[in-house]
Amino acid sequence: MSDVLASFNAREKYSHFRILVIGRANAGKTTLLKRVCNTNDEPCIYDEKNHCLLEPSSERGIHDIDRPFAFTSNPQFIFHDSPGFETGDESQLMKVQSFIKKRAKATDVGDQLHAIWFCFIPNKARFLLDLEKRFFNEEGTGSVPIIAIFTKFDDLINQVYDDDLEEDQNREAADRLLKDNLRAPLFGYKFPPRADVCLEDMHEDDGNHQDKVKELMAKTAESLDDLSLKILFVSVQTNNLELCLEYAWTRSQEAHYYGTIMRSDQNASA
């Protein structure tokens, strides 16, 4: 009961929600984040003194994991970017692990890491890299949940496309390949993701991507252990009113339930 009541003070405890985004080059990370924040603008990069650099450049790109960035459309989302492990450089893996450990030990809630979005490009030639396997096998992330995001599923469909098959059959073939060679291995590792989402056509402006963004938001919220963080995450969803209303209703029902119990206990002891 105390956890539920404490959750309503979440906004006093936390000012923003911090996400580490990991993924190979061309995994569609920037497109995804723009969809999440409902913007076409470039992000605002922050320097070491937390001053906003108006836009990224070749000298100060968003691929520095220690340099946070945000979009002006929703500045309560703070992102960190890791370029992934496609180079095979073990130091990159160690840098990501060190970043997660550092944020996990942070005593200031403003410095803590709240979630990890790990983006994968489904490629039938090589679904998982060696360092990606090590990331999910060697060290856990504590209470920080990982959500696996399979981007560019439409590209995988093109890779397996057979002119002799119907469109639905080609989609099913790509889906089986994804599940057998990427999803199943990931969830079989020592420290698996807590959830996964499959995305496609995120670059299109036809509005169909909104359902997938909503799914990512919902699964991220469900993966959070701390109820205060869950409430915070939902509350900063300025572009996902439906999710906000759903959680507001759930929390109001819980508050009503516990309020009824408290009144009953008080009446019984009177």
Rank of each mutant, 00 (worst) to 15 (best):
211 D>K: 15
215 E>W: 03
143 S>V: 10
81 D>N: 02
77 F>D: 03
223 S>T: 10
136 F>S: 00
107 T>D: 15
125 A>D: 14
18 R>G: 05
146 I>S: 00
232 L>G: 02
269 S>M: 14
151 T>W: 00
27 A>M: 14
253 Q>W: 05
248 A>Y: 08
178 L>R: 08
239 N>P: 01
70 A>K: 00
64 D>T: 10
78 I>K: 09
3 D>P: 02
10 A>Y: 10
152 K>V: 04
137 N>G: 03
146 I>M: 01
232 L>C: 07
87 T>F: 03
49 K>F: 13
261 I>F: 02
178 L>Y: 08
20 L>K: 04
158 N>K: 15
119 C>Q: 02
199 L>N: 08
153 F>V: 06
160 V>G: 10
99 F>C: 09
268 A>T: 14
94 M>D: 13
158 N>W: 04
180 D>R: 13
270 A>F: 06
63 H>K: 12
101 K>A: 13
107 T>E: 15
28 G>C: 05
101 K>W: 04
33 L>P: 00
200 E>R: 11
108 D>P: 01
191 F>A: 05
45 I>P: 02
19 I>Q: 00
229 L>G: 06
50 N>H: 10
152 K>Y: 01
20 L>S: 06
249 W>Q: 14
114 H>G: 10
209 H>V: 06
113 L>V: 12
224 L>G: 04
214 K>T: 11
191 F>W: 12
228 S>T: 12
2 S>N: 09
90 E>A: 14
73 S>R: 03
146 I>F: 00
110 G>F: 06
227 L>S: 10
257 Y>V: 04
213 V>D: 04
152 K>G: 02
138 E>W: 04
258 Y>G: 03
25 A>K: 08
260 T>I: 13
18 R>H: 13
238 T>V: 14
69 F>D: 05
99 F>Q: 07
155 D>F: 01
74 N>E: 14
262 M>F: 15
78 I>S: 02
104 A>F: 03
49 K>R: 12
131 L>D: 08
214 K>V: 02
32 L>S: 03
181 N>L: 00
79 F>P: 00
23 G>A: 10
249 W>K: 14
226 D>M: 05
10 A>L: 07
53 L>R: 14
160 V>Y: 05
218 A>K: 15
90 E>V: 14
265 D>V: 13
184 A>D: 15
231 I>A: 09
39 T>P: 03
189 Y>K: 01
113 L>D: 10
156 L>H: 02
259 G>E: 05
188 G>P: 04
246 E>D: 10
93 L>Q: 02
63 H>E: 15
53 L>A: 06
16 H>P: 04
173 A>C: 12
179 K>N: 14
189 Y>C: 03
249 W>T: 12
215 E>V: 07
223 S>M: 07
96 V>H: 01
110 G>M: 07
270 A>H: 12
23 G>C: 06
59 E>L: 13
141 T>S: 15
163 D>F: 09
88 G>C: 11
110 G>K: 09
260 T>G: 12
149 I>N: 00
121 I>A: 08
82 S>Q: 03
236 V>P: 09
60 R>C: 01
163 D>M: 13
71 F>N: 11
209 H>L: 01
131 L>C: 05
218 A>G: 08
127 F>Q: 07
102 K>I: 07
29 K>F: 04
164 D>H: 11
191 F>C: 07
206 D>S: 07
12 E>H: 13
234 V>S: 01
174 A>N: 06
169 Q>V: 08
131 L>A: 05
74 N>F: 00
241 L>G: 01
